[in-house]
């Protein structure tokens, strides 16, 4: 009994090295936040699919901002393609050029693509991911998009592994379902730290996020962290305050379980 369990674990470990997550050991995108990078073992895999979950409406702005910032760090001089559904515009408004500039993105480096429904968005997204001349692709879907199933996400992940394009799937108002994503995050906005200048002490400060790693294909344990975006350095930094990253504070998924979990999902 225990021998078969051991061989099963070994087989699963072998499967992991064969799948698209073999590319996880490729180049990494550093977030710039020392704590997060240390926990991730250097950063996020570039040639991989990452899922960002957020409650729609409430945290749509924060999650989109986080995706944009990751894309900006990964893009290496290449453009970012943002693919979204028409209903995204009703949900959170249109992407606004001056706001992109305020986050450190040159709007000339962005292509906005809209699709009528999730299927159209996924097809356009898959095409963009397959193109090596693209720096990062953000695919934004609203609600539990049934089109974004395990097959679709695996196709995206394989295309990303081939082309080396950072692929971020922004899932607003969706519940996590099995997918081929290398990492899965839940993003929330966090209260910003006060500005240093005295007269504006009560003003909202730099964008701050509470990020929660829900799952990592490489077996890294989940954690929570609070990060801040520094536009001038185009980098994340650790933010102080309640709920900031506590080393080992939140054992979201035990390390031993993760492999089994991945094995089950991959099956």
């Amino acid at each position: 009994m225990s021998r078969s369990a051991a061989s099963l674990t070994a087989l699963r470990a072998k499967l992991l090295t064969l799948g698209p997550c073999a590319a996880v050991s490729g180049t990494l995108v550093q977030t710039g936040s020392p704590i997060v990078d240390a926990r991730l073992g250097g950063g996020l895999a570039r040639a991989a699919l990452h899922e960002l979950f957020a409650d729609d409406g409430d945290y749509a702005g924060a999650a989109a901002g986080f995706a944009l910032m990751l894309g900006l760090r990964a893009r290496a001089g290449k453009p970012i393609i943002w693919v979204r559904e028409d209903k995204g515009e009703r949900g959170s408004g249109r992407l606004y050029g001056p706001g992109l500039v305020e986050l450190g993105v040159d709007p000339a480096d962005m292509f906005l693509v809209t699709g009528r429904d999730a299927a159209m968005v996924l097809r356009a997204g898959a095409d963009s991911v397959g193109c090596g001349a693209v720096g990062a692709v953000v695919i934004e879907t609203w609600g539990n998009a049934p089109a974004l199933n395990l097959t679709a996400s695996r196709l995206l992940a394989l295309a990303a592994a081939r082309s080396g394009v950072l692929t971020l799937v922004l899932r607003l108002g969706a519940d996590p379902v099995p997918s081929a994503a290398a990492t899965r995050w839940r993003i929330k906005a966090a209260p910003s730290s006060a500005l240093v200048m005295a007269p504006a002490a009560s003003a909202p400060g730099k964008p701050a996020f509470d990020i929660n790693l829900l799952r990592h294909r490489g077996g890294i344990a989940g954690f929570e962290a609070r990060v801040e975006w520094d536009r001038d350095r185009r980098s994340f930094s650790d933010a102080a305050g309640p709920g900031a990253a506590l080393p080992g504070g939140v054992p979201a998924i035990a390390a031993g379980r993760t492999v089994a979990d991945i094995g089950r999902r991959a099956a």
Binding site: G61, A64, G93, L100, V101, P207, R231
Partner: peptide
């Protein structure tokens, strides 16, 4: 595009 002051938080929203 209007340039923004270093050190300032974003004054314009990402979504409109």
């Amino acid at each position: 595009w209007l340039a923004c002051e270093p050190g300032e938080p974003p004054l314009r929203p990402l979504h409109l």
